[in-house]
């Protein structure tokens, strides 16, 4: 009976978090790793940026669609953010999901299909 308890608890735990939640967590964890590889150099681990050279991304007002285009195509404004051709739609979905959770406090997945749509409509 004692041996059964942890299994029961595990079962209970899993059935509680919906499939959606689990996927969101997976996306977020992957997104964190991607952020470390592709973004942290410039925007720093805490997203605060580096003086006036790289902006803070903690309070960005950009929509998920705009973010998808920015990550893929880069931007030459006052500063220069290089395009990152290595990022696939899934990577971008994971990155946006991670950013939303980390700095937006919002646990909501950004689906791959939305990324693909957004990328077709980049200006």
């Amino acid at each position: 009976m004692k041996k059964l308890a942890p299994i029961l608890i595990a079962f209970f735990f899993f059935s509680c978090s919906s499939k959606e939640e689990i996927t969101q967590q997976q996306y977020s964890v992957e997104g964190m790793a991607l952020y470390k590889t592709h973004c942290e150099n410039c925007h720093q681990a805490d997203g605060a940026g580096l003086r006036d050279l790289y902006p803070s991304i903690q309070q960005t007002k950009l929509s998920p669609e705009a973010l998808a285009c920015l990550f893929k195509n880069g931007k030459k404004g006052n500063g220069f953010m290089p395009a990152n051709a290595k990022l696939q739609a899934l990577d971008i979905a994971e990155l946006v999901t991670y950013m939303r959770e980390k700095w937006g406090g919002k646990k909501q997945i950004y689906p791959v299909d939305s990324v693909k749509m957004a990328l077709q409509n980049c200006r």
């Binding site: 150099n41 410039c42 580096l50 220069f80 290089p82 990152n84």
Partner: peptide, 16 residues
């Protein structure tokens, strides 16, 4: 170099 996407920003953080 100023447009370096990889290690330069890290180096500049440390050089600061």
């Amino acid at each position: 170099f100023t447009t370096c996407p990889t290690i330069c920003p890290k180096m500049k953080t440390q050089m600061l």
